Simulated assay, not measured.
Amino acid sequence: MLSGRTHGARFSRGLRSVTLLGALAATAALLAGCAAEPDPTVARDALREVTAEPAAPDALEEYDAEAHPEPIVEPLECSPYLVITARGTGEPKKKQLLGPVARAISAARPGEVERLELDYPADTEINAGATLGARTLIDTLNLQAESCPDQRTILLGYSQGALVIGDALAASDARLVGVNVGAVSEAAAESVLAVVLYGNPRFVGADPSGYGSYSPDTNGILPRPPGSFAGYEGRLRDYCVSDDFICQATLSMEEAGHVAYYDNGMQSDGAAYVITRLGPITERAEPEPEPTEESPSPSPSAGAEVG
């Protein structure tokens, strides 16, 4: 895995080496097509309100895990892999940045992947919406780990979705949203196979999980405490490019960087990274054919006594 200080030309070399894997031959086709792009300015302004105008505690009481301990989600099927996506602020239901990434992962393991889009608003009311997202994600991870102990989970997040995933995985004292929504259990944390984030507002340039053309001396607009992802080191890629003012808080007014992930190859690279972490393809035994008139049941073996 490349460190937070590896960017520029080394990213390009790493991208080429990973995407040449034979198992990824169909990935390019799955990643093709135009996607509607969110408005980076709207996302930035909404994210800043998380700290400028924090929500009153009583407004988020319904998501408090201590006051309301029952999970707010139902268990899903026990597939070998569960891919959970958390979309960015204002992204439409269809043609999201993370959709092609999830589809490429599913294509690599036909019949083995359950996909779930995290049910949260992803709107500009981030204090409330992202808190709901964090509670929903934590409950989902914990319930799946209990119901399906052999299932492995892949988490994909973009922009506000990256904030939601990151805060859910982090300790409560390192969160901006969802401080009281509970914690990921030890079993659930162990079940997480890979985490891929794009345009993370809580990006920390010095963390080893960073990947891309960013400056390691520059953080996101809402950086989390360094080392918050230490427990997921080796399982996480936090993608950021140098002109993305969400994950690289600068005075630049250029907005193209935050939507560059749609066509800069990082969708493909994120999918490739996850696919290389999947286990061997499950071999399924071929069912024995049903007896027919043309194909009668086998006769007793030679020499066997027939009663």
Rank of each mutant, 00 (worst) to 15 (best):
A189C: 09
V204S: 04
G220P: 10
P223D: 14
T282L: 02
R235L: 05
S252G: 13
A271R: 01
G111L: 05
E77M: 09
P38V: 14
V42C: 10
S215M: 09
L141W: 04
R175S: 01
D167H: 01
E146N: 14
G22V: 03
H7P: 06
G227T: 15
T19H: 07
L278H: 06
V192T: 02
P75Y: 08
A35H: 10
P280G: 13
A43L: 11
D173A: 15
G166W: 00
R237T: 08
T250A: 07
P208Q: 02
L193K: 04
P298H: 03
G257T: 09
A304R: 14
N219Y: 12
D119M: 09
P57T: 05
V184H: 10
S79N: 14
S12K: 14
D64T: 03
L76C: 01
V179E: 11
I72S: 03
L24E: 13
P208C: 05
A256P: 09
A86E: 13
L60K: 04
N142C: 12
G178R: 02
L20W: 01
E91V: 05
T27F: 05
R87S: 09
G234N: 14
A25Y: 12
D123H: 07
N200C: 02
A55L: 04
E286M: 13
N264C: 11
D64H: 02
V204N: 06
E288M: 13
L155F: 10
K95Q: 15
P225D: 12
E66Y: 06
G8Q: 15
D217T: 10
A285T: 15
R237M: 08
V50S: 03
A170Q: 03
R103I: 08
Y198S: 05
V259T: 15
L176N: 00
R103W: 06
E233C: 11
Q144C: 07
G205I: 07
A302V: 14
A189S: 13
G133I: 02
T131M: 06
G161S: 01
I165N: 00
L163P: 00
T131N: 06
L251S: 11
E62L: 09
A304P: 12
L30C: 04
E49A: 00
G178C: 08
H258K: 12
E186W: 07
T276R: 14
Y63Q: 04
I138T: 15
H7D: 13
A168H: 03
I84F: 01
E288S: 13
Q151M: 10
G234V: 14
P226Y: 14
G270T: 06
Y261A: 00
V42G: 10
R10L: 05
V18Y: 09
D238T: 09
N180G: 07
T140G: 10
Y262D: 15
R115K: 01
E305N: 12
I72W: 07
I105M: 10
A187N: 14
L163I: 02
N200W: 02
L169V: 11
G234Y: 15
